[in-house]
Design a binder for these strands. Structure first.
Lengths: 150, 150
DNA sequence: ACTGATTGCATGCGTGCGCATGGATCTCTA
DNA sequence: TAGAGATCCATGCGCACGCATGCAATCAGT
C-alpha cells in the first residue's frame, strides 16, 4: 500500500533539509581547509581507491552523475595544472588517457579525506545514536534499492 | 552515545543514493514536461504560495541556499523575459522590486507542480508504505533539527 | 537639513558547465 | 587490407553561476 502524495512531498522536504545543509558545509570545508573543490575531491578519492591510476573513460563512468565527459576532461586538466595528477597517453590504446595520482595529489587527498570524514561525523555522527544511524541507513538503502528496481 | 565515523559515512552514502537520482529525475522531468528549469520552478512555487507577489529581497531570503543575490536577480530577469512574471518598482520603497506572477506564470506553475508531485510520488511514494514513509520522515526531521541546533 | 552608513538591486568579470562537434585511433567486415 | 563505423578525448560556443562592485534610494545621527 503506497503512502499518499502528500507523504512523498513531506519525505522529500525532509530529505532536502538534511542533505542540502550537509552537502553545503562539506563543500565549504573542503575548499577552506583542504583547498580543493568537491569535484576534485571525488576524482582524487576514486583514483586513490583504484590504486592511484585509472583511464579517463573509467573515471568518467564513476562520475557520470556529476560530470559530462567534456566536464570531466577539463576537471582533470585543471587537476594536472595544479600538479595533483599526471595525464599520459594510454600505452595500449593511444586514444585513451591514463590519469595517475602524483605525490601532491595523494597528500592533498589524505588531508581532504580527514576534513571530509570530520564534517560528516559532525553533521551525521554526533547527532545520532549508533542504533538510530543504522536504522536510518537501512531504511534509506532499502528505498534506494526499490527505486532502482521500479 | 555517538555512532562511529564509519556509520556517518555509510549514512551519507545512503542519503546520496536516494537524493541524487530523485533530484536528477525531478529536474529532467520538469524541463521535459513543463519546460522550466528547477530554479524557475522553485521561484514560481514560492510566489504562488505567497499569493502571487513578493519583493525580490524576500524571495531571495527563501532561495538563499540555491542562489546568490545576483543569481536570483538574473533568474527573475529571465522569468520576466519568458513572460512568467512582472517586475515593478516597489511603490513604498523605490529601491525595492516587486515580482508578480503573470497568468502564464501561474499556468506554467500549475502544470509544473503536477509533474513535480508525480515524480516525487513515483520515486518516494510508491516504494514505501505509509507507515514506513512516516517513520523515515520523522527520523530525517529529527536529524535536521538536531543538526540545526548543534 | 546634511552627511555618512545602510539597503536593494543590477552589472562587469572570470570561471565552470553541457551540448555539439572535431580529430585521432582502433575495430570490424568484406 | 581497405574502408566504414565506433570509441576516446578535446575544443568551440553559449549560458548560468558567484564574487566584487556600482548606483540609487532610504535611514540614522546630529
Amino acid at each position: 500500500m503506497a503512502s499518499s502524495p502528500d507523504a512523498a512531498q513531506r519525505l522529500w522536504s525532509a530529505l532536502v533539509d538534511v542533505y542540502q545543509p550537509v552537502l553545503r558545509d562539506v563543500v565549504a570545508v573542503l575548499e577552506r581547509d583542504a583547498g580543493i573543490d568537491s569535484g576534485t575531491y571525488s576524482a582524487l578519492a576514486y583514483l586513490d581507491r583504484a590504486g592511484g591510476r585509472m583511464q579517463l573513460r573509467d573515471l568518467h563512468a564513476l562520475m557520470r552523475v556529476r560530470y559530462s565527459q567534456p566536464g570531466l576532461s577539463r576537471l582533470v586538466q585543471r587537476m594536472e595544472a595544479d600538479g595533483l595528477v599526471d595525464r599520459r597517453v594510454h600505452p595500449e590504446d593511444r586514444r585513451g588517457t591514463v590519469v595517475a595520482l602524483r605525490r601532491a595529489g595523494r597528500d592533498r587527498f589524505r588531508r581532504a579525506h580527514e576534513v571530509y570524514v570530520g564534517a560528516l561525523e559532525k553533521h551525521l555522527g554526533r547527532n545520532l545514536s549508533a542504533a538510530a544511524a543504522a536504522e536510518l541507513t537501512d531504511a534509506l538503502e532499502a528505498l534506494a534499492a526499490r527505486r532502482a528496481d521500479g
